[in-house]
Amino acid sequence: MARIAAHIAVILTAAALPGGAAVALEEAAPIGDAERGAELFTDCVGCHQVGPEAENRIGPHLNDIFGRRAGAIEGFPYSEGLARMGADGLTWTLETLDAYIENPRALVSRTRMAYPGMESAGDRADLLAYLRQFSASPANIPEAEPTAIVREVDLPPEVLEIAGDPAYGEYLSAECTTCHRRDGASDGIPSITNWPEEDFVVAMHAYRQEIRPHPVMQMMAKRLSDDEIAALAAYFARID
């Protein structure tokens, strides 16, 4: 209910903005309810431990499971199937863990994990929110796995139609100018000042679709909506 209310608030804010600027198409939400996940974990404790005193039992301990390569705990007798998946590059992330818990044998053939699978996506989210607390914190290790997910927010079409507002682009540009100098100087980082609008838009979509390969720019572009990209293009094209 709170989440629905938040969506409405976002849409209302958008409508009330001066100049009709659009807002972000996304908002972050916790992975799930960790307290409820702790209760669900009682189904797992027959085989798995997690927490400060956790040790390998029938299954491996689950500390630092997020970001860990599958089958990576030295000395633990993994099934051949899981060891092979690890060697092939399977890493435990929110997505891969979710798929594994939903149906272990669908992700890893002949895994020894006898668990039949957790059907409810909500239950899985809560369980993973609980387990996430026992893996590295991004505040300490920035490369640690995310702790929240970005949800799509449906915006009414009239908001989406607004494009190329340079004033909104100026606001958004604060994130760009941490690296790209507004005055157009380019040493090490290319200038984006006075770029033709169309080139700018095409480049940003190429980053968003991972056609252009730069990880910082992919990250930046992926959370820009179409009209935010247009707004930025309009702003940078018009800088004096």
């Binding site: 640690a144 995310p146 990880p215």
Partner: peptide, 8 residues
């Protein structure tokens, strides 16, 4: 403030 994506 939550991390929503990362790279290294």
């Amino acid at each position: 403030i939550a991390s929503v994506s990362s790279f290294i």
